[in-house]
Design a protein around this nucleic acid. Structure first.
Lengths: 198, 198
DNA sequence: ATTTTGACTATATTAGATGAATGGTCAAAT
DNA sequence: ATTTGACCATTCATCTAATATAGTCAAAAT
């Protein structure tokens, strides 16, 4: 594929992103997207095999953008407790704006978008790695202490993924905001060295 | 209302409970319920103004049963950390079996059952009271310590209500089971007083 | 050779129309 | 006081026709 054709592919994804974000998967048509870039529906199928694959690509880019920003936080300096706090708050803020991601989690309760499972699994693995990195660093530096670091990572992942749902789908972002700070304090307190009584 | 008619009312609620639990609000008809107790649809309307009111009563009894059992735990002896752990695990176990409650939280994502708001609000307030009781007792006895006890209660409520959703609606009860123990440990650890001394 | 087009097909979705089922009412009967 | 069964209005399920949409492809354009 030439450079120019890749540019068309990008424009397709760009248009698709806008439509999917605004109207969702079902209420966006391939015709809408094609029209936006002054092409015809058939042209999209030169670059993507299906609407599902295109949606997949859009979601992938949405989450990749989040990953890049989270990765910066993980690789930044600062003590691990503070990094974990920044990670959590940034994660929630960025994902709160990720409309297509919201649609996929909402779909979990109704029809399921099985075709995005791979992208979501990748994101899950990314997050597991990042959290493990943060906690490991904290352990090495002597700030944090765990009886089982993997269990702690699992717990944090469960909590982050659980609170997403009321937060994003039921729009309780503001109502729960204070409790999120509280959650971060609690997580920190329980992992802080010399505090853990286990 | 006489004693005998109250007995009929109970039978209505009993039949309604079975149908609603098994088939849900929409797929249960007033005719089904009436037939089960060898009455006619109209008879139910002598005791309840509407299907919604009947469903409300069923949900209320379901949650009242949970409340009674949770109340026993809160009023039991034992140190507050251990009580909080038992409360959390029992709460999840009991609510995991409360089918009508599940339906109402699932409805939050689709159509909302506004007519059960009162019952749910009552349960929320009950829980807030119970948690406040547990934590206050822990504080008085010198086991626990908080910068702001109400914020801690809010946090715990947010977490309990958040994890319900994947747990009950996405049937990840087993997958998350281990992390729930971990959550209880974490909560306990962060509230425990004098954790640095051995 | 690569990319784009527009006509084409098959499938899915919607709109409308009909009939059945259901929530709710009520006067009469028990 | 309680129960009944006929009754009404509205919703819901089912069918059909028409429309819209995803996806294909040979031909045209670049």
């Amino acid at each position: 594929m030439t450079i120019q054709s890749s540019a068309v592919k990008s424009r397709i994804v760009g248009a698709a992103t806008k439509f999917f974000s605004q109207f969702g998967f079902h209420k966006t048509t391939m015709g809408d997207i094609a029209l936006k870039i002054h092409k015809v529906k058939g042209a999209i199928y030169y670059y993507f095999d299906s609407k599902e694959e295109l949606y997949n690509e859009v979601l992938k880019q949405e989450l990749t953008s989040v990953q890049i920003q989270l990765n910066e936080i993980v690789n930044s300096n600062g003590n691990s407790v503070e990094v974990l706090g920044r990670y959590t708050k940034t994660r929630l803020k960025l994902l709160n704006e990720a409309k297509n991601y919201h649609e996929t989690i909402k779909a979990d309760f109704i029809e399921r978008y099985g075709f995005v499972d791979d992208v979501r699994k990748d994101f899950d693995e990314f997050e597991r790695t990042q959290l493990l990195t943060i906690l490991s660093k904290g352990k090495e530096e002597g700030h944090l202490e765990f009886s089982d670091i993997n269990s702690t990572v699992n717990l944090i992942l469960m909590l982050l993924k659980s609170i997403e749902i009321p937060l994003f789908l039921q729009e309780e972002y503001k109502e729960y905001h204070q409790s999120i700070d509280e959650l971060i304090s609690m997580l920190s307190a329980s992992m802080q060295r010399n505090m853990n009584s286990k």
